Computed example of a mutant assay.
Amino acid sequence: MLAPVALYADERPRLISTDAGVTELIFALGFEDDLIAIDVTSQLPEGFPALPSIGYHRTLSAEGLMSLNPSVVIGSEHIGPPSVVSALTQAEVKFVQLRSAKSSDQLRDNVLTLADALDQKEKGLRLLTTVDAKLAELNRTNLAGERIAFLLSMDDSKLRLAGEGTSGQSFIELMKAQNVADFKNYRNISAESLFEMQPSVIIVAGTDVESAVPSLLEANPVLTHTPAVKQKRIIAVNGATLVAGLSVSAINEAIRLTQALSNSPALVVQANK
Score class of each variant (00 low, 15 high):
G168L: 08
D10W: 05
D132L: 06
A144T: 14
S211C: 07
I26T: 07
R12Q: 11
K102M: 11
A260N: 06
L138R: 03
E11D: 00
E146K: 13
L143M: 11
E146F: 11
T241L: 09
T258Y: 01
A37T: 04
L112Y: 06
S153D: 13
A6M: 07
A191Q: 01
V180G: 05
L44S: 04
D116P: 04
Q43Y: 12
A266R: 15
P81V: 07
R140F: 01
A37S: 10
K176E: 06
E146P: 05
Q169V: 05
A181Y: 10
V204L: 06
G47L: 14
F95K: 11
M154N: 03
H78M: 14
R108A: 10
T18M: 14
E77Q: 15
K184R: 06
Y186R: 12
A133H: 07
L65P: 01
S100N: 06
T129A: 15
P199S: 01
S211W: 01
Q198C: 00
T113S: 05
A181C: 08
D39N: 06
Q259V: 09
L246A: 08
I74H: 02
A205G: 12
Y8H: 08
K230D: 01
A181P: 09
D105M: 14
E192L: 11
G206R: 10
H225P: 01
E173P: 09
L174Y: 02
P265H: 13
L125G: 02
H225L: 11
I255Q: 04
Q90W: 00
N69G: 05
L242T: 13
D109M: 13
G145K: 09
D105L: 15
V111D: 00
L2A: 09
H57C: 01
I251F: 12
L125W: 00
E173L: 12
N139S: 10
S170W: 03
D10R: 13
Q120D: 02
L161N: 15
D109L: 14
V73F: 02
E210P: 00
S262T: 11
D156A: 12
E122C: 04
I255E: 07
V237E: 00
V72F: 02
V222S: 13
S100I: 12
